[in-house]
Simulated scan of single mutants.
Amino acid sequence: MSSVPTLQVRNLRTEFATRAGTLRAVNDVSFTLERGRILGLVGESGSGKSVTGFSIMGLVDAPGRVTGGEVLFQGRDITKIKPRELRQLQGNRIAMIFQDPMMTLNPVLRVDTQMIEAVRAHTSASKAQARERARETLAMMGIASPDERLQAYPHQLSGGMRQRVAIATAMLHRPDLIIADEPTTALDVTIQAQILSEVQKLARQQGTSLIWITHDLSVVAGLADEVAVMYAGRIVEQGGVDAVLDSPLHPYTAGLIGSLPANNRRGSRLQQIPGMTPNMLQLPPGCAFAARCARATAACQAQPEQTEPLPGRLVRCFHPALTASAPSAVSTPGATAPQGLEARV
């Protein structure tokens, strides 16, 4: 078994050219994902987490483009390979699950047609063999009567069933890496829990590495091995999921956790992060979170580098909360709540 990590992202930068200027959606993002591990990529809406996933997949469309850094898939920089070689990896060794299943499913083709084509695009399997693999994968996802589902058109399935089919399609080739962009956000908690269980089982049994992009910390807490918190295009904190959620070092991470309903007394106002997310076209020269942070000092006018103040804990902050007495970044009631962060508890 190879000791090379499944994925190494090094100083990744993705920019969008607009009439108002250059928007740096992903700015110097780095992380490593070992085989069979699950990384939760979390943050507010607009923090850059989805663009990070699209950049890794090579799916950033104009006017956006990857302008720097490396994406090493099993040791090979896939930002430098030819488009034909990249297409051989996409959907085969690397798969993506989208929030909207209709980005995966063609509304005018039956499910079996689409899944059989997905199998045969990357293998020499016969039509019968491809159909059997599709049926087995649907059953693996807990879909009852898989033969009937194969005969259906997407519009004949419920929203939850369509998402299961889309996830099953991504899993057809037992890929080495799956990037999931909030695929269970629109599903009820029962269906969500079943899908998360199946995905976690796949990672453990098949050695598949998984990046789960979400704003839901409760999902990350139950699913991921590691977590990376993004803010304004950068990863501001990363580490083991239990360590980060139990003892956050960055004030933004602390603010997200503190704003969860479960972490507030019944009947009291929710704790909130003051201010608004900065304009990505006009980011301040220093720490992007400084204007919202109770710990900010003059040092925060410079851009903080990533440090490792504790073993296995990486953070971009001049004042990480290394002691229980560190001041909180959460404001008094009445401030603006973080955008896009909703916990299902």
Score class of each variant (00 low, 15 high):
59 L>Q: 13
60 V>Y: 00
62 A>N: 08
62 A>C: 01
63 P>D: 03
64 G>C: 08
67 T>F: 04
67 T>I: 00
67 T>R: 00
71 V>E: 02
72 L>Y: 08
74 Q>V: 02
75 G>E: 00
77 D>P: 08
78 I>F: 10
79 T>D: 04
79 T>Q: 15
80 K>S: 15
82 K>T: 11
84 R>W: 10
84 R>H: 13
87 R>A: 03
87 R>K: 07
90 Q>E: 09
91 G>V: 04
92 N>F: 15
92 N>E: 09
93 R>S: 05
94 I>A: 04
95 A>L: 03
95 A>Q: 09
98 F>E: 11
101 P>M: 09
102 M>N: 04
102 M>P: 00
102 M>F: 10
103 M>S: 15
103 M>R: 14
103 M>T: 13
105 L>R: 02
106 N>P: 07
111 V>S: 10
113 T>P: 04
113 T>I: 12
115 M>E: 11
116 I>T: 11
117 E>I: 11
118 A>P: 14
118 A>H: 12
118 A>N: 13
120 R>M: 14
120 R>S: 05
121 A>K: 13
122 H>S: 08
123 T>A: 13
123 T>R: 09
124 S>D: 13
124 S>L: 03
124 S>T: 08
124 S>W: 00
126 S>Q: 10
127 K>V: 14
128 A>N: 08
129 Q>C: 06
130 A>Q: 04
131 R>I: 13
131 R>N: 03
132 E>F: 01
134 A>I: 07
134 A>R: 00
135 R>P: 06
136 E>S: 14
139 A>I: 06
144 A>R: 15
144 A>K: 15
144 A>Q: 13
145 S>E: 15
145 S>P: 08
145 S>I: 13
146 P>Y: 06
147 D>P: 06
147 D>F: 08
148 E>C: 09
148 E>R: 15
151 Q>A: 12
153 Y>N: 11
154 P>A: 03
157 L>Q: 04
159 G>F: 05
160 G>V: 01
163 Q>L: 10
166 A>E: 10
167 I>A: 07
169 T>Q: 10
170 A>M: 12
171 M>F: 15
171 M>G: 08
171 M>I: 05
171 M>H: 12
173 H>L: 07
174 R>S: 12
174 R>F: 03
175 P>G: 09
176 D>V: 02
177 L>P: 02
177 L>C: 11
178 I>S: 01
179 I>K: 10
